[in-house]
Simulated assay, not measured.
Amino acid sequence: MVVIRLARGGAKKRPFFNIVVTDSRNRRDGRFIERIGFYNPVASGGEESVRIGQDRLTYWEGVGAQLSPTVARLVAQAAQKAV
């Protein structure tokens, strides 16, 4: 199954997550099909904390990719901010 989830990056105590499309059997930080955005939980001030390529997200959902619970929450937050 294809899933849209977070892949951790960044340094120790400074997490940074890429929002990736991957096969569910791959490791969390392993091989992925496409990077469609990022999430920076320690963003401060005017820094952007979440960016998601909405066109690619709709495409992957259209072909059957499932969102992880955390990514679903981030997508909802991003949509709420956009309105």
Rank of each mutant, 00 (worst) to 15 (best):
V2E: 04
V3L: 08
I4R: 01
R5T: 04
L6K: 01
A7S: 11
A7Q: 02
A7F: 01
G10V: 08
K13G: 14
K13M: 12
R14N: 12
P15T: 07
F17T: 06
F17W: 14
N18K: 05
N18E: 06
N18M: 10
I19A: 06
V20S: 05
V20E: 04
V21E: 08
V21M: 01
V21H: 07
T22Y: 01
D23P: 00
D23K: 14
D23N: 10
D23R: 10
S24T: 13
R25S: 15
R25C: 08
R27F: 02
R28W: 09
D29G: 08
R31N: 09
R31F: 08
F32A: 06
F32Q: 03
E34H: 14
R35F: 04
R35D: 09
R35W: 03
I36Y: 03
G37K: 02
G37Y: 07
G37A: 15
Y39S: 09
N40Q: 03
A43T: 07
S44T: 04
G46Y: 03
G46A: 03
E48N: 14
V50Y: 02
R51W: 02
I52M: 14
I52P: 00
G53M: 06
G53N: 12
D55K: 15
D55C: 06
D55R: 15
R56V: 13
L57P: 00
T58D: 15
T58C: 05
W60A: 06
W60Q: 06
E61H: 04
G62S: 13
V63L: 03
V63M: 06
G64A: 08
G64P: 09
A65Y: 12
A65P: 08
S68R: 04
S68Y: 06
P69F: 01
T70W: 10
V71Q: 01
R73N: 12
L74V: 14
V75F: 13
V75L: 09
A76K: 15
A79Y: 13
A79S: 11
Q80C: 03
